[in-house]
């Protein structure tokens, strides 16, 4: 059975791709994932804001208290000026080592904060050997003075800038919070995206009642969360040129099969790998193969998009009617 899939022009041996997570932050983790069957690896994001923050913090702490008191003109040894790797060096080294370590495509992930950062770091990633770049446009539109169209425009600007800066494929990972998700997807397609990765899960802060404080809260996903990407992949499949990667809520072979039927070229996962380890990927892969064999599918390609909105018997099932029916049943 042919299990291959095409993702942004790259032929992957199967559709399972670990997404950016702590597991892909070290070479051992990457090796384990490759051994488990991963078809490509998405590295954790390079955060421009983090780099800027780290640089400012380093300077601040190296200067804090200096030149103030005669016995302690400074408080730290300061390595020769070229010794600090304060920029993306560590990340790029990781890209390079990941490339050397594995035989599967390495997708670098980038979260910029300035236009110069997006393009410069994207170029750096390409030069370091990344096979593709995933733009992790992690943006919570919290400014009440910024209209939705400006937010959308910014996505397109970032994509266009990066697209023209590099020659490798560029994917855009985005959240679902657009007034017209389908139109947004189309615009990104037109602006040159090679893939859409649906969807980013925003960290959602919590309130700690003991401390009476707002605290960051990372909750790993559950299978039911895959419904959101499922719907939108099904809607978009066949309507735009880009590859489609599903992410969020993939925990079982069934989940992966459903997303493939909806039209996903690639299934990304992180939570299940963090919970169960790399062998979860093997289990899902084996489960998919087994199910497909049992159900006599010849290839992944055959199954892909088979229940997309375009191909399913009831296209409205993915739209508003679905909600109405559910509501009626509840009533």
């Amino acid at each position: 059975m042919n299990f291959e899939t095409n993702y942004m022009g790259m032929t992957l041996k199967n559709p399972l791709v670990p997404s950016a997570s702590p597991m892909t932050s070290d070479l051992d983790g990457i090796r384990r994932l490759e051994d488990a069957g991963a078809a490509a690896i998405v590295l954790p994001s390079l955060f421009e804001e983090q780099i800027r923050h780290d640089a400012a913090e380093l300077v601040h702490h190296l200067e804090q208290g200096t030149n103030s008191y005669g016995e302690a003109i400074t408080y730290f040894p300061e390595p020769a000026s070229d010794e600090f790797a304060i920029g993306p060096e560590a990340y790029l080294k990781h890209v390079d080592e990941a490339k050397r370590t594995t035989g599967v495509p390495i997708i670098a992930s980038l979260n910029g904060s300035t236009m110069g950062g997006w393009t410069d770091y994207a170029r750096n990633m390409e030069q370091a050997g990344a096979d593709a770049i995933e733009l992790n446009i992690y943006h919570v539109a919290a400014d009440i003075d910024v209209p939705g169209e400006d937010v959308e425009k910014r996505y397109i600007e970032i994509l266009s800038a990066v697209r023209s800066a590099v020659n490798i494929p560029v994917a855009v990972k985005l959240g679902p919070y657009f007034s017209s998700m389908a139109n947004m997807a189309k615009k990104l397609d037109e602006a040159g995206a090679d893939a859409l990765v649906l969807f980013n899960r925003f960290y959602q802060p919590d309130i700690d009642l003991e401390l009476i404080e707002v605290v960051p809260n990372v909750v790993l996903s559950n299978s039911h969360e895959l419904r959101l990407p499922l719907r939108w992949i099904a809607i978009l499949y066949g309507r735009i040129e880009t590859s489609l990667a599903a992410t969020t809520g993939v925990h079982s072979a069934q989940d992966a099969i459903k997303l493939t039927m909806a039209g996903a070229d690639v299934i990304q996962m992180a939570s299940t790998l963090l919970r169960r380890g790399s062998h979860a990927l093997t289990d899902i892969l084996d489960g998919m193969k087994q199910w497909m064999e049992e159900n006599e599918y010849e290839s992944l390609q055959q199954m892909k998009g088979s229940l997309s909105q375009k191909s399913c018997p009831d296209p409205t099932a993915f739209e508003r009617a679905n909600y109405m029916r559910a509501l009626q049943r509840y009533m």
Partner: peptide
Amino acid sequence: KKTYGAKGDEV
């Protein structure tokens, strides 16, 4: 540039 170059362009 000499003083801060190694500590990041931002600075």
